[in-house]
Computed example of a mutant assay.
Amino acid sequence: MTDKPTNEDFLRLADPMRRELLAHCYRMMGSVHDAEDQVQETYLRAWRAYDGFEGRSSLRTWLYRIATTTCLTALDNRSRRPLPTGLGAPSTEASAPLAQDGEVPWLEPAPDAMTGVGADDPAAVVTSRESVRLALIAALQHLPPRQRAVLVLRDVLRWKAAEVAEAVGISTAAVNSILQRARAQLSEVSPHLDDPVEPLTTEQQAHLERYVAAFENYDVDGLVHLFTEDAIWEMPPFVGWYQGPEAIAELTRIHCPAQGPGDLKLVPIAANGQPAFAVYHRADGVYGQFAIMVVTFSGDRVGHVGMFFEESLFETFGMPAKWEGSETK
């Protein structure tokens, strides 16, 4: 007869899974802040119920079930978290005035350090680059919460249909039907999600360095050659989005507060398994926080840029409000 599990056992065994559970909740919620809240709730519920855990499934599976239920409950009365491209409006003229909407709960990027991307993790499949890339998180927001949960559990975590049915509280047949609809919807809103996500090639890395140099040197003409022909630029909470190198360059000339070389500083960070930067803008000789930039490559050029102007994200990424690094000009 085995000893009854204790709360101390739970804390010791469950704590190493915190990052992967955060990644799971982030896929569901579209916000690292909301994901942290749901992970906390998951651990609280699990801790309270651990005396009754009978070990019929692994502790990991049990925690994922609780986390999924917790997220679904939280999503009952919440709007989805879109990017501007997800609002259904056509691309915006670069010369148009900027319009922002602070009422929309916008999608947020997530630091790799929080979701475990690139970590030496035995459950690396659940924290791979593909599983948290920005395009996938944005596409998942187009699905109703239950569809989102079924697709994540089946296609990301590779659970069996019967396991998903138990976690979500539906039949196996319903799981298969929901999964089919979710895959079709995802393919419609983001047809290139099956493309592999790999670390940058040598050529892409060199291209990224040219991209950074163009921004820091205020080389707007040079930017045109760094984007794909159908590249997209979007920057919540501003509702507009812009397509094509010329439109992105014009947007930069008209609306970017930088006036010349050295006005912007791009400090490398890591978000969603992709290249990313904490962008600082110089005013009165001081580099203050400006935006978190996440860059997506399409081939050897930049195909998408998300500029996130939520100030709290700098703290999320462990970046200071003012940049005083030795590389500032």
Results as ranks from 00 to 15, higher is better:
residue 152 V to C: 08
residue 143 L to I: 02
residue 93 E to N: 10
residue 166 E to A: 15
residue 164 V to A: 07
residue 48 R to H: 12
residue 152 V to I: 15
residue 164 V to M: 06
residue 297 F to Y: 09
residue 199 P to C: 05
residue 278 A to M: 02
residue 271 A to T: 06
residue 113 A to G: 07
residue 19 R to D: 12
residue 11 L to F: 10
residue 184 A to V: 13
residue 219 D to K: 04
residue 300 D to C: 07
residue 325 G to Q: 03
residue 114 M to S: 12
residue 125 V to Y: 12
residue 50 Y to Q: 01
residue 202 T to R: 12
residue 4 K to C: 03
residue 105 P to R: 01
residue 258 A to G: 15
residue 82 P to C: 00
residue 297 F to Q: 07
residue 128 S to K: 02
residue 21 L to S: 03
residue 218 Y to H: 15
residue 309 F to D: 02
residue 226 L to V: 04
residue 160 K to T: 08
residue 251 L to R: 13
residue 302 V to K: 05
residue 92 T to S: 14
residue 65 R to G: 15
residue 1 M to Y: 08
residue 114 M to F: 11
residue 267 V to K: 06
residue 116 G to V: 11
residue 218 Y to L: 06
residue 13 L to D: 13
residue 91 S to E: 14
residue 295 V to Y: 06
residue 149 A to Q: 09
residue 268 P to G: 01
residue 198 E to R: 12
residue 275 P to Y: 02
residue 260 G to P: 02
residue 274 Q to S: 11
residue 210 R to K: 13
residue 268 P to M: 00
residue 69 T to G: 15
residue 210 R to G: 09
residue 48 R to F: 11
residue 25 C to M: 05
residue 324 E to A: 13
residue 185 Q to S: 13
residue 295 V to L: 09
residue 287 Y to V: 09
residue 137 I to R: 03
residue 210 R to A: 10
residue 44 L to W: 10
residue 162 A to N: 11
residue 50 Y to H: 09
residue 44 L to Q: 13
residue 221 D to F: 02
residue 59 L to A: 04
residue 243 Q to V: 10
residue 173 A to G: 14
residue 71 C to N: 06
residue 157 L to I: 08
residue 213 A to L: 13
residue 257 P to F: 07
residue 90 P to M: 01
residue 102 G to D: 15
residue 145 P to H: 02
residue 60 R to Y: 09
residue 159 W to Y: 14
residue 85 T to V: 09
residue 201 T to A: 07
residue 89 A to I: 01
residue 126 V to K: 10
residue 252 T to R: 03
residue 129 R to G: 07
residue 158 R to G: 11
residue 45 R to D: 08
residue 74 A to P: 01
residue 174 A to D: 12
residue 148 R to N: 07
residue 56 R to W: 08
residue 267 V to R: 08
residue 199 P to K: 08
residue 2 T to K: 14
residue 309 F to V: 05
residue 15 D to I: 04
residue 162 A to I: 11
residue 138 A to D: 11
residue 179 L to V: 12
residue 53 F to V: 10
residue 179 L to M: 10
residue 258 A to D: 06
residue 50 Y to R: 03
residue 302 V to N: 05
residue 322 K to H: 14
residue 264 L to G: 05
residue 326 S to P: 11
residue 95 S to L: 05
residue 164 V to Y: 04
residue 181 R to T: 14
residue 80 R to V: 07
residue 236 P to F: 05
residue 31 S to G: 04
